[in-house]
């Protein structure tokens, strides 16, 4: 059954996603997103050496929050806003879980809106990317 604004309740969890981006996935993200900072693919880059590893693009995680919301929404509306803060680094080949929960549902100016809290957790369950998204339903 398609998601509708009427059948959403505050506190509803979004179907979670698990991702384990390896170096190849990060290279694909660099190509698609245009960020070729070597700290996301080159272990010999000075900043990677100082950190001890290459790291997952913050914006790969941000975009994954957008993907979570898009998958949940199933094109029954449009995404108005997606934001996040990068609180912790994530490393390649480590599983991250992308999660979300409905925080608020309201109407404004004739629009049916929903705000969701979204975030990523690393393999240890530590929150690395807390964020929010706002969706406008059809």
């Amino acid at each position: 059954m398609a998601l509708t604004w009427d059948n959403i309740k505050e506190g509803d969890a979004l179907p979670e996603m698990k991702k384990t981006p390896g170096v190849t996935q990060l290279v694909k993200y660099a190509a698609g997103g245009g960020d070729f900072n070597p700290m996301h693919h080159d272990y010999n880059f000075f900043q990677s050496k100082a950190i001890g590893s290459i790291i997952v693009h913050g914006r790969f995680k941000w975009s994954s929050l957008g993907e979570l919301v898009s998958n949940w929404l199933g094109h029954q509306g449009r995404i108005k806003k997606v934001s996040c803060q990068y609180r912790g680094m994530d490393f390649p080949d480590q599983e991250m879980t992308v999660k979300g929960v409905v925080e608020r549902k309201w109407q404004e100016g004739g629009e049916k809106l929903v705000e969701v809290a979204v975030w990523t957790e690393n393999a240890e369950g530590k929150l690395t990317t807390p964020g929010k998204a706002v969706v406008i339903f059809k």
């Binding site: 900043q47 913050g58 449009r78 995404i79 108005k80 806003k81 934001s83 996040c84 803060q85």
Partner: peptide, 16 residues
């Protein structure tokens, strides 16, 4: 300063 990190990102859409 030579080291760069991303701190946070937001996008807001006003149309499709």
């Amino acid at each position: 300063l030579v080291n760069v990190l991303d701190g946070g990102t937001e996008v807001e859409y006003f149309d499709s």
